[in-house]
Design a protein around this nucleic acid. Structure first.
Lengths: 227, 227
DNA sequence: CAATCCTAACTAGTATGCAAGTTCTAATAT
DNA sequence: ATATTAGAACTTGCATACTAGTTAGGATTG
């Protein structure tokens, strides 16, 4: 497990949650593996308590499954849960990008623009950084629409989705994500909700194509029921 | 606080979460009041640990705000958070009722029908029971569409909304909820997604009218920023 | 009288210990 | 050799104890 240093402003519980989440999404903790509270607590230099609380939060999104008196099972890549996360994001964010056309102020557009330029910068140099920038781009849209509580709920479920998108950045060659974001940005800037909706749906539809590649390359991580 | 008996199948943590949630939604715990872990634990006959964990989960939806070393503040009725919960429900469930037209099987329709008949039965006799039946009706729609994980996320945020709907059942005379549900059901049964969408949006739009009445009658519970 | 400081009584965050349930192993019985 | 069983070594759920930070009230000082 990859253990970054603790940010002094976060509690031990938040630290544990952040580190475990990152390791699950990056697949440093493998889907289907068992992790124990004591084991993680030792790695992080904490007691079981904050780790236990982090596990509880993670279990709410079913990204881990707590088996009492047995351990904590990191979920396999589950197409049903990915479908749900994808449905939620498409549904919510499609509505948001339309609203953003009305609500985005000049400074919001500037932030989106700055984020996009970073994406374009790292596209050729370090595509691994794109996932974080992508998430930030989507977060900005929630922020513009004053829907940060929705963002928290959606992003918790999105972990299933993020874990697969992370694979996709490494195995899918044709990275259209950045140009998709550019199209969404242009539509918001032009205050054109019809174009924004279309650009966003095109962006999210792209994931369907990736799934075929991923499910072939990483089938050892994919739970049985999925196809 | 109203303390129902513990269901033997639930853990102490789940019991604490359920009891505190119900008391917040029913307003037996007043918006703006402070509650302590020890105080609730004593009322429930538990130690602080499961109550602490229940508070953590509640704080994720901002229905309570944990102030470290001070206590746990039950949120005032906050129009911004209600707006977010309402937005999320309208957006997600509008999409769901359309899908439900395709997905609902005969047994699903029967369950919806049974629920509706109970609603009609209690409408005249005990309207207090309607909130639970209403929630169940909406849950059935998530179930039909295989979106139970979305249901958990949405219902956690919906607590803000539920608390106000609870007021509305007591103060708003014209209870159209049940006939709204009937219209949604008829559209799903007729496999008519356009009618389902329209009926659902009419249902949710009704809440706008109630808000005017509630914000006048219960303004002592409403946080400052709202209008 | 007003302002300040100190202390005692609170709070939640975290560590630790115990209870109860699961799993794995190895010894025993057939 | 195989099946069974006893027990040791695990696990999480929960209770308890301790730490550190906040608050309220009274004594003290100006």
């Amino acid at each position: 497990m990859n253990v970054p240093p603790k940010n002094p402003s976060e509690t031990n519980r938040e630290y544990a949650f952040r580190v475990i989440s990152e390791n699950i999404i990056s697949l440093d903790i493998e889907p289907g593996s068992m992790i124990g509270e004591q084991e993680i607590a030792t790695d992080l230099g904490l007691s079981r308590t904050p780790v236990h609380e982090a596990f509880l939060e993670l279990s709410k999104s079913k990204i881990v499954d707590i088996l009492p008196q047995k351990g904590c099972l990191v979920s396999m890549i589950d197409s049903d849960l990915i479908r749900e996360a994808r449905f939620l994001r498409i549904t919510v964010e499609t509505a948001l990008v339309e609203d953003a056309c009305e609500l985005a102020k000049e400074e919001d557009l500037q932030e989106l623009q700055d984020n996009l330029e970073l994406q374009e910068f790292y596209l050729a140099r370090d595509p691994g950084k794109l996932l974080a920038l992508d998430n930030k781009f989507h977060e900005l849209i929630y922020r513009i629409c004053n829907k940060m509580q929705c963002y928290y709920m959606v992003s918790l479920m999105s972990m299933h989705f993020d874990r697969v998108r992370n694979l996709s950045l490494h195995s899918v060659k044709d990275l259209k994500i950045v140009s998709d974001h550019r199209a969404i940005f242009d539509a918001i800037k032009a205050k054109d909700p019809v174009a924004a909706r279309a650009a966003f749906q095109k962006h999210m539809a792209r994931f369907d194509l990736d799934w075929n590649i991923i499910s072939r390359e990483y089938k050892q991580y994919i739970s049985d029921g999925s196809k």
